[in-house]
């Protein structure tokens, strides 16, 4: 599959395909999934939909290298090398550290690695998420949407080819969510992205590729190729058709 031409970004990123083979999760004696294969095409925005408790967050954690007991799978990049150090992670909570200001939160990664933080680039990224004036603000003074934008800037600051997002917009009000979706789509255009969500319209709006995860043990159903490029209008007939197909796959239609 060929995804939309990458948008020009501040730093070039080598696209990377991610493959996961034979993923398996056993939790409390229950097999949530077994023998699951997933490929994230390089430079594509992939959305993973599914009912809660199906194991989609665990799948994302496996991709992020956050393995816990009971979960396993064979994970590598398209170049055959492990993914360690080439993934950025964005969670539902903004995970901002309350004792650091916005700028220091954005540069947390370099501080953890013992590198000198690139403040210039951090400020640039903050400007891109429209928070240039808040570099020295404390997180608790920001609104939920602003905090999640800081988290997005922190994710971009890591400058990794693969970005994994676990329902990062679900805690926000509708309008803020729409704005943040547009911003994420724009700024992550040249990365390999996996977005886990339970909102079919969000997936249809943002995804180059949409997978629906359902059943027990769970399997992945690909959605037929979606019309047009991302940031689709939910009013379009083709999106409506896809929406019905998703509901059917989720077992609700």
């Amino acid at each position: 599959m060929q995804c939309a031409a990458p948008a020009p970004s501040s730093l070039p990123i080598l696209p990377l395909t991610v493959t996961l083979r034979a993923a398996r999760l056993v939790y409390g004696g229950l097999t949530l999934f077994d023998g699951l294969d997933l490929e994230l095409t390089s430079g594509c925005f992939t959305c993973l939909l599914g009912p809660s408790g199906i194991g989609k967050s665990s799948l994302l954690r496996l991709l992020a290298g956050l393995t816990t007991r009971g979960i396993s799978g064979e994970l590598r990049g398209g170049d055959g090398l492990p993914l360690t150090g080439r993934v950025a992670y964005m969670a539902q909570e903004d995970l901002l550290l309350p004792w650091l200001n916005v700028l220091d939160n954005v540069t947390l990664g370099s501080r953890l690695r013992g590198e000198r933080p690139d403040r210039e680039r951090a400020l640039q990224l903050l400007a891109q998420v429209d928070l240039a004036d808040y570099a020295l603000a404390r997180p608790e003074t920001l609104s939920g949407g602003m905090r999640q934008r800081v988290a997005l800037a922190r994710t971009l600051m890591e400058n990794r080819p693969v970005v994994l997002m676990d329902e990062p917009f679900s805690g926000l009000d509708a309008l803020t969510r729409l704005r943040l979706q547009a911003l994420a789509a724009e700024l992550l255009a040249d990365r390999t992205v996996l977005l886990v969500t339970h909102d079919p319209l969000e997936a249809l709006r943002l995804g180059d590729q949409v997978w629906v995860m359902n059943g027990r043990p769970a399997t992945l159903f690909p959605l037929a190729e979606l019309p047009g490029a991302p940031l689709r209008d939910p009013g379009e007939p083709a999106v409506q058709t896809a929406y019905r197909a998703i509901l059917h796959l989720l077992g609700a239609g």
Partner: peptide, 29 residues
């Protein structure tokens, strides 16, 4: 746990002291 997860993804190789210094200790203050 979320903060520790974030640090784990950010670090290519584990650096327990850095995590202690930048995350665990301030969080425990």
């Amino acid at each position: 746990r979320g903060w520790l997860d974030l640090a784990r993804v950010m670090l290519p190789t584990p650096r327990p002291w850095a995590v202690l210094r930048h995350i665990a200790i301030p969080a425990a203050l």
